[in-house]
């Protein structure tokens, strides 16, 4: 039906210093505050050089694949996030992505076929099942 492709991109080690909270709070005392901070979440046509290409909300089926790109900064500790792909409220895929400190970008993708046309959404959920972002898009002719 479709091919799901999770992936991750590592960023520079100096990112940890960009989060003022992470230096002040001891790890494990405030789990909510120690969750990674989502700084970018987009749907795009491709990923090139660890960057999303052609951010959009409508994608042609002829592209063959669509990507969900997310960037986290800071990432206090190794953790996981999920990219949950829904087609018209029906869960199609749940991509588990590992994040590593100090900052991390990751993406997942979906290979498309004719039957996948219609409205979609991707929910970005942290390890505590907190909804971080919902991205809505459509697959068209």
């Amino acid at each position: 039906m479709l091919l799901f492709l999770p992936a991750a991109v590592f960023f520079g080690p100096d990112a940890r210093a960009q989060n003022p909270l992470s230096d002040d709070l001891p790890s494990g005392e405030h789990p909510l505050l120690l969750q990674p901070v989502l700084v970018q979440a987009v749907m795009c046509e491709a990923i090139e050089r660890f960057k999303p290409v052609n951010n959009a909300v409508v994608f042609s089926i002829s592209l063959g694949r669509v990507f969900c790109f997310t960037a986290f900064d800071p990432v206090h500790q190794e953790t996981i996030v999920y990219h949950r792909w829904y087609r018209q409220d029906r869960l199609i895929s749940n991509a588990k992505l590992v994040l590593n400190p100090p900052k991390w970008s990751s993406f997942s993708s979906m290979q498309l076929r004719e039957a996948d046309k219609g409205p979609w959404r991707v929910e970005v959920v942290d390890s505590q099942e907190n909804l971080m972002e919902t991205l809505r898009f459509s697959i068209v002719d």
């Binding site: 409508v58 042609s60 046309k117 219609g118 409205p119 959404r121 919902t134 809505r136 459509s138 068209v140 002719d141």
Partner: peptide, 10 residues
């Protein structure tokens, strides 16, 4: 939430 149901070809 309400989501537009796009169809056709852009």
């Amino acid at each position: 939430s309400i989501q537009p149901f796009w169809t056709g070809q852009i």
